[in-house]
Amino acid sequence: MQPKLAVWKFSSCDGCQLTLLDCEDELLEVAGQVEIAYFLEASRAVVAGPYDLSIVEGSITTADDVERIREVRRMSRHVVSIGACATAGGIQALRNFADVREFTSVVYAHPEYIHTLDRSTPPSAHIDIDFELHGCPIDKGQLLEVITAFLHGRRPQIASHSVCVECKRRGTVCVMVSKGIPCLGPVTHAGCGAICPAFNRGCYGCFGPADTTNIPAFVGALSAAGMSDFDLVRVFRTFNAEAPAFREASMAAEAAEDRR
């Protein structure tokens, strides 16, 4: 019997599950090796659980989500979270730094119709997760590695070093050293292939913090490259704002800004 694959969506832009459909050369091959048992974006056919591998996209933002993610765990042998929303609460976690009732009244004429939680959290805040794949969006090569690894019962081989290593491997001259462009590469998790510096732009941290970082020491270099405290708050507070290392960095910069 083929292993059963399920893809679940919570609060998200659909980009990470689209990454699976973006595997144009591999999609039919993958579909030949697994039973796609639940993947609403791709199929009407729904096969009941249990599932061998559940892939979860999106963050938990409603009371119903909390129940649903627990149900996904109960039905699944392995659960893998994909993307910044499912690993760090995503851009929706910007609400964690503000008053969500005020947000509701900004966007909706009838806030009383809206049911949402005060905080956006990753699935790991509610259930045990077997593996987290970072990125906003995730990289398709890494997604294929994770699926392949779980189908073969081994650990995915995903590097945990920073974007800097990818720039060196790609042969990109450091934009921060050579051009003075502020870049989050030294503290950001690898996986994208160091795209931004290759396009003459500093990394903006969409893969979240690397596993070992020293952001307080690095912040001085960003300031020297011309970033104000206001800039620092914002650069750490985007798609991985609730990832602990980035959260601490934005809170520290905010405190420094307040002192001024």
Partner: peptide, 13 residues
């Protein structure tokens, strides 16, 4: 679920 982009944008550059 509701996503508050218009609100997130306030105060950004």
């Amino acid at each position: 679920p509701p996503r508050f982009f218009e609100a997130f944008l306030r105060g950004r550059s």
